[in-house]
Every structure is written in structure tokens, then in C-alpha cells.
Computed example of a mutant assay.
Amino acid sequence: MRLPGSARISLLAVFIIGISLFHYLTPLHLPALHDLFQRLYYLPIILAAFWFGLRGGLGTAVVVSILYVPHVLFQWGARPSLELEKFLEILLYNVVGGITGYLSQKEEERRNELERAARRLEDSYRTLRGQADLIIGIEEQLRRAERLSALGEMSAMLAHEIRNPLGSIRGTAEILRDDFSPGDRKFEFLEILIKETDRLNRVVEDFLRLARPLDGEKKRCDLAAELRELVTLQESEATARGIGLSLEAGEAPTVAGDRERLRQAFLNLILNALQATGEGGRVAVRLAMRGASGDMPAGVEITVSDTGRGIDPAQREKIFTPFFTTKEGGTGLGLVITQRIVEAHGGTIGLESEPGRGTTFRVWLPV
């Protein structure tokens, strides 16, 4: 335990006064004890030198000298040889105090310099670590941008090469289906064909949404009103599935954004939550204002929570990867589109999930 400065000074004073009292109160016919007490003065001098450096060592030596000189003059004055020896001892007190204090002070300065160097190295390490994390994040964004760019180019070709034939196939299947009754196997095959063309058409539409530029005009958008409308539109779907759907929208300012794109992003999250939740479960949508914290400025946070089966930890890193899906018949593009919309508005999206207990998506948008 490191003693405070006042405690150290008090301890030194007790040492010096105690040794001086022993000197003055011990009879002169006990020279061995006086020699012992004389040597004991080195303890407070060396301690002061270690604790307070050059000034501490010299200052304590001077105090000891002042207290010891009267004893030498008045009690040992009748013995000149001993008196000379005592004065030489006093001189040695000051030499020891000065040298020890000087060396201790230099050592303390060196230790402080090493500590400052260590702190500078630690700050440099933290800075480099932060820069490395930033570079890794930028590289990941570049890789994602490259993937999205490739998807955009491919989606443009798909729109031309697939969408028109899909319409023709679906129209032909509907015409052929009218020639058969619902119980006929050919009727069932044509139903499957129509459903599959619809699914393929949804994939093409998702590709188009992914390729569509997101730099449109941004206007003031009331998120609370938009979320209320989306929840109202999905209440019938939630009721049909036996799922409770609720909205909690507190006071929140408007944000600058593309109203239709933001609606699409939040609709994707709500639909995903409903599809991931079984009968008897709940989906909760919340809107709240979040104050500035750390490097994050003030903004609006939208959370969509479900009580579904959750997402396996091994799959969370892939959840925003194109074509990755855990849903049967899913395209794996819904969350990619949602992430792109949120980031285009200067926001962030993340998720928290625990297998068997549900998932929460958190969207933060600047105000």
C-alpha cells in the first residue's frame, strides 16, 4: 500500500524526534548506545531520499543535523576527539542524504518517463486497432458494394430476359387451367406452374428493387404515422396466423428520407417477424428517440421483435448476405434490400437473437 505524503512526513518526524530523544536521555557512560542511535539517523534520511528525492534527502539531513548539533556541543564538548567524530558523522548525513536523494530522484524521473512512454504506446496501439477495425469495415462495405453492383447488372438483364416470358407462361397456364376441373391432376399441375411463375416473378422484382438507385429526393417523413399504417395493414395477416401484433410509438421527430423506400424496409422486417413467429406468438414494433451517446449522434430507433424460433449464431453473420435465407420459398434478398435502404439514409441496422426466444431487429436513423 502506498502511503500518502502527509503520512510519510509524519512517520519521518516520529523517527527523527524519537532517535533524538534517545540521544538526549541516554547517559554518556553508555557510548555503545549513542553509537547505535547515531547510526539510526540514516533510516529517516534514506527513507526521505527515496520518498521525496533530492530535496527530501537533503532536507531531512539538515533537520537531523540541527537536532544533533546541540547534543554534540553540550554533552560531548569535553571530549574533542569524539566531538570531531560526531561532526564528521553530521557531514556524512548530508552527503548520504544528497547522493541518495539525487539517485532516487533520477530513478523516479526515469520511471515516470517509462510510464509516459508506455501510455503513449498504449494510445498508439488503440489508435492503430481502431484504424484496423475501420479498414476492415470499409473493406467489407466495398465487398458488399461489389456484390450489389454485380447483382444490379444481372437484375437488369433478368428483367428483360425473364419477366416478359414469365407473363406469357402465366397467361398460358391460366387459359389451360380453365379447361380442367379443380379435381383434375392437370388442374393441380397448372396451379403449381402458376404459383412457381409468381415466385419467380417475385425474385425478379426483388432484383429490380436491389438494382434501383437509392439517391432519390428525400423529404420529411413521419415514421410514427408510417409505422401505424403498416401495422394496421398487417393486422389481418397477424390475426389469421394467430399472432399478436402491437405498435409502441413514442415522441419522435421526423426524418429526411424516401417515404416509399422506408415503408418497404419496415414492411420487410414486419413480414419477416410474422413469418418467423408461430401461432400464439407476438410481434412488437417500437419507435423511440435515442439521444447522442459516444460517437453516435441523436437519432430515431425502430425495433421489430418477435417471439419466434430465433436465428442460430452460425447464421447471423450471413443474414444480410444476398440469397441467404432460412425461409422455405424465400429469395434471400429482402434483408439485403432493407439494409441497403437503411444505409442509404445514413442509418444502421443490426439484430439480436437467441435460439428459441425470438429475434429483434434494430434500425437507427439520424434526425
Score class of each variant (00 low, 15 high):
I169R: 06
R259P: 13
S20K: 10
Y93F: 11
R228Q: 14
R147E: 08
N94R: 12
I270G: 04
Q75A: 13
L208G: 01
V283F: 00
W364M: 00
G101V: 00
T348K: 10
L245Y: 08
E279N: 11
G171M: 07
Y24Q: 14
V367G: 11
E188R: 15
E343V: 00
V255C: 02
I349C: 06
L365H: 10
I99A: 03
L103I: 12
E343K: 02
A249D: 06
A284V: 15
L227G: 06
V64M: 06
V63M: 10
T197P: 01
A173N: 10
L176F: 10
A132T: 15
E301C: 08
D222M: 03
R202F: 01
K186F: 09
G98M: 00
T254L: 13
I319C: 04
G167E: 11
L11Q: 15
N272L: 00
L230H: 03
R212H: 10
V204I: 09
G330F: 05
L114H: 11
L200W: 14
E113K: 12
E146T: 14
L91C: 05
T127N: 11
E89T: 15
F52R: 13
V72C: 12
Y93K: 03
A61Y: 09
P313C: 05
G291M: 03
R111W: 06
F207C: 11
F323P: 01
A288P: 12
L58F: 03
L267M: 10
T326I: 12
